[in-house]
Design a protein around this nucleic acid. Structure first.
Lengths: 164, 164
DNA sequence: TTTATTGTACTGTTTAAACTGAACAAACTT
DNA sequence: AAGTTTGTTCAGTTTAAACAGTACAATAAA
């Protein structure tokens, strides 16, 4: 008997917790599967193998492998070593708020900067155009592009309030 | 000739702007279609009919209808009346940052509270259980549930920093 | 070296979301 | 009232994401 199928009520409550808390974590940009995987790992609170996770969540080991990889990339889960154990072991990071918040903010900042750069390029090609577009339409689009750039700046400002 | 197909370069730049800025707006929880619809409306900067949008984005009128509905619900777009015009007219809200940010924060706050409530219920059924679960496992799960509740509280705090 | 075990790449399948087109209902025009 | 016009509902289709299973590569054990 696996350690994860001892008590029926306990497992029911764990399962419900996974379902509910996963909804919150999805807001941070995780897929449903990744969120459930993290919560499972977080509840068990000790290193798990891919087979453990697979059994606990009733999903394929392949899914666990890819899911774990993105969680590790996001710095939400880390691989740990235990002597004598051959399989890979992973554990959830403990201070969930800091990890999730900083992971979230960093991703937003990165995306914000990249998209702002794209808009700036468009603005550039617009001002480089001297003919072909009626002046007032250049004016109009240019104004909008400016507003959009401001929008990105304001996002950056707002994110900086969330001290990573 | 429609007003949306005059200049080739202008339309190309508009199209690129839609594609790029839409990526940013998707971060706020909009689907790709909704984000593109909003940007189109925002760039044109004057009331549009469903047929206008449909033509401009090359999507069905049905899509425009459902997309506009959610944008209106999110308070990002509003319906306007122009005397003599029979079709419904919609325009993008102008101060995009405030509207998007507050829409975003409100949705997060709402979801956070609801999921926190669910977790509290689970915690309740756990403490009501006096038998069937070994004490140390009750202790363990209870601790995790407490941490999860704290997590939700911290989200609320963080969101409040983003003055809606 | 051979055999076994474990994680990942890859291909095909399933599932969910986005989208379309036709039919309908409401409101307007005549 | 009859005929148009316009938005939405609904059922079916398309598209994209999540997932599973086999096969392979790498490492460990023998």
């Amino acid at each position: 008997m696996s350690e994860f199928e001892n008590d029926s009520l306990l497992n029911k409550l764990r399962y419900e917790t996974i379902t509910e808390f996963a909804k919150t974590l999805e807001m941070f940009g995780l897929t449903a599967g990744e969120a459930r995987l993290f919560v499972a790992l977080y509840l068990v609170n000790e290193p798990m193998t891919l087979d453990n996770m697979s059994e606990m969540l009733a999903k394929s080991k392949t899914s666990m492998s890819t899911g774990i990889r993105t969680l590790v990339d996001l710095n939400l889960v880390e691989r740990v070593w235990v002597k004598g154990v051959r399989k890979d072991l992973y554990k959830a990071n403990d201070d969930i708020f800091n990890k999730f918040m900083s992971s979230f903010v960093l991703r937003w900042l990165d995306a914000t900067m990249r998209q702002k750069a794209s808009i700036l390029e468009i603005k550039q090609s617009l001002t480089e155009d001297k003919h072909s577009i009626p002046a007032h339409q250049v004016e109009e689009l240019n104004d909008r592009l400016h507003q959009i750039i401001t929008f990105h700046n304001e996002i950056s400002q707002a994110l900086s309030k969330l001290d990573v």
